[in-house]
Computed example of a mutant assay.
Amino acid sequence: MSNSSLSLIVEVKARHEEAQDIVTFELADPHGRPLPAFSAGAHIDVQVSSKGQDTIIRQYSLCNHPEERDRYLIGVLRDPASRGGSVAMHDEIRVGDLIQISAPKNHFPLEPAERTLLLAGGIGITPLLCMAERLAHTDTTFELHYCTRSPERTAFRDRIAASGFAEKVHFHFDDGPAEQKLDLESLLATPAPDTRVYVCGPTGFIDAVMSTCQAAGWPSDRLHTEYFAGAVANTEDDDSFEVKIASSGATLTVPADKTVHQVLTENGIDVMVSCEQGVCGTCLTRVLEGEPDHRDFFLEDHEHAANDQFTPCCSRAKSKVLVLDL
């Protein structure tokens, strides 16, 4: 894995237990210099080193006010089913540690709208909290609906209660009374031409929101999503296929049990990857010929339909050959 995007060294200035299994880390320049600016919805790549494992890179959304330049704040959910990143962050990163990160990137930006509807599931609150800060600062009309299992698993409750936009935030707990739970059908029943919807959280939560919006007739260009993890792919019916490298003419076989990225790496062809789940877009590669089998959550529907780029970390091919611009 290439680490060329990890251009910043930051110091962990503080860590705080925000809720059950959720920790925030405050990161700053070790010498007190301003950090690169970021916009609401941005994330950073973080290099995580876990004992007995290879160094890995994970993405974490920035959840502090986007006008702050003295720090980055990230929230990390401890996920026992993860591939090591969140557990290592919780167990091994301490105040005073130096870690390597990328400059902020934003694949989930706020777009101009008269009204904004923010829907957060669990740790999906992190980019949406940053958006709420920005929207409140610009006096934009918005609502934030925050869904969690229970109050004990709800991060940033004190911060939200102390904010100037507390009355715009609605909490919904799985273990709460029925009337307190989020009613998606009622909330999204009437598409509003001047409203944009932003949703972030687990795949099931996002899919529920998107299917409700689509059933109600919301225009797709008014719907914005940020996935934190890719879906578990069904690989039983996968076949082998070939990728051709345009620059050299070399043809490589991708077997059913390997990804395109793995085969490229084995043959000395370096493509930067990060999430390895088709979420972040780091490995996006141009396709010159052939039809990809898109399995990512990064590209939008019209970009999938164009078939001129794909994510080699998880996507495959519907055609027998893909010609890659490498």
Rank of each mutant, 00 (worst) to 15 (best):
A317T: 09
T148Q: 04
L284F: 01
A136R: 10
T251N: 07
L144D: 06
L188R: 07
Q20K: 01
A132T: 07
D91F: 03
D70G: 02
E17R: 05
L188Q: 07
D79S: 10
R58H: 04
L117V: 14
I125H: 12
L62K: 03
K320F: 04
A113P: 01
E18Q: 10
A136F: 09
P292F: 09
R78P: 05
V232P: 00
N307M: 15
I123M: 02
D79F: 05
N106F: 06
E143K: 10
S274W: 08
V48M: 05
S319F: 01
E26Y: 07
D325Y: 04
R94F: 13
P112S: 15
A231N: 15
I269F: 11
L129F: 15
F298Q: 12
F38W: 02
H107A: 14
A103M: 08
A306C: 05
P127T: 02
C130Y: 04
S319T: 10
S220T: 13
P255F: 03
E68N: 11
S163P: 12
A37R: 12
L252Y: 03
N106K: 07
P36T: 05
D194M: 00
P255W: 02
M272D: 14
Q20S: 00
E68L: 14
G230R: 09
P177D: 15
G124P: 08
A208W: 01
N3L: 15
S82P: 05
A81D: 04
T138G: 03
T116F: 11
F165C: 00
I9P: 03
R222P: 03
A231I: 13
P202Q: 10
A136N: 14
D45R: 09
I125R: 09
V169K: 12
Q53G: 03
E303W: 11
E114W: 05
R78A: 13
G204P: 07
R115T: 12
L187T: 12
A113C: 08
R71Q: 11
R149E: 14
T285G: 12
D91Q: 11
M1R: 10
F298T: 13
V48K: 05
K13E: 13
D308P: 00
V254A: 11
H43C: 11
S7L: 13
I22Y: 08
T24Q: 14
I57Y: 08
Q20V: 00
L135C: 07
A305R: 07
A132H: 08
D91Y: 04
T24W: 04
V273A: 10
P80N: 10
Y198I: 00
A28S: 15
D293C: 02
E266I: 02
H261E: 06
D308V: 06
A28L: 06
H43R: 12
S102C: 15
I56Q: 11
K13T: 11
Q20P: 00
M131R: 08
V271E: 04
E300G: 07
G217K: 09
I206R: 02
L187E: 10
D301S: 04
E300D: 13
P202L: 09
V279R: 05
P202F: 06
V197D: 09
